[in-house]
Design a protein around this nucleic acid. Sequence first.
DNA 1: CCAGACGTTGTT
DNA 2: GTCTGG
DNA 3: CCAGACGTTGTT
DNA 4: GTCTGG
Length: 232
Amino acid sequence: MFDRYSIAASAQQLIDHFSVDVPAHYKKYYNAGPTHLLPIITHHHPEGLSFFYWGAIPQWIKNKNISEKLINVRAETIKDKPVLKKKMMRFRCIIPSDGFYCWKKVGKKSAIPYRFFPKNKLPLSIAGLWEEFEDEQEETHHTFSIITTQSNKQIQPVNERMPLLLNKETQKVWLNKDASENELLGMLKTENTIMLDSYTVSPRIGLLSANESTLVLPSAPADQFGNLTLFD
DNA sequence: CCAGACGTTGTT
DNA sequence: GTCTGG
DNA sequence: CCAGACGTTGTT
DNA sequence: GTCTGG
């Protein structure tokens, strides 16, 4: 499961890097997680940021509680599932980020959080799918899910899965309205070429409500209970 | 979708 | 709702 | 054709 | 080969 990242780039960095308009209400998230209202860029409207909730609610779950949210879609699954392929054809987005978090298991129940971020400090583009649906009260909701893939050599020791990171070229295809199904399926196999650095961070990222700027900074390796550990 | 069947007729 | 295994 | 499953993972 | 029960 991939459930934390940060988007703490300045408005100007987003404008420069993605050529998008950034509204005044844009707010930095040092600890973006499921259910947060986060900035994404849809292929329908790549000129601006859209603010959607992280975590899709499948329409066939009528009355189930919200914990059933789907925050990830496996890249490998999309090619096999007609529903997802259709969704890929119609509802692509990228999620701007400047780093992401992964938990490394160190025991049955404890894990230590790591942060991965690009060496060149430029924003990352995470591939995603979005959806719009009406609930029973006829309220329209906009949500998105992040596409995950098998971790590469660097992240593997920490976590099995990582977000699908797009580079300049693959991002262009992903946001192209006229991209073909084959082209897009190809993007799902994008190997990460972006050089990343990593260090351990505060386990406070486990709290969805935590959002202080220091969360992105290095912190002594500690598990979610706050126990310091020598094994990182 | 695919394994497995694939014909007819009727006491009263 | 749509997809699919039997 | 239809019953039953259906994008993800695992306590942070 | 085509039809169909599961």
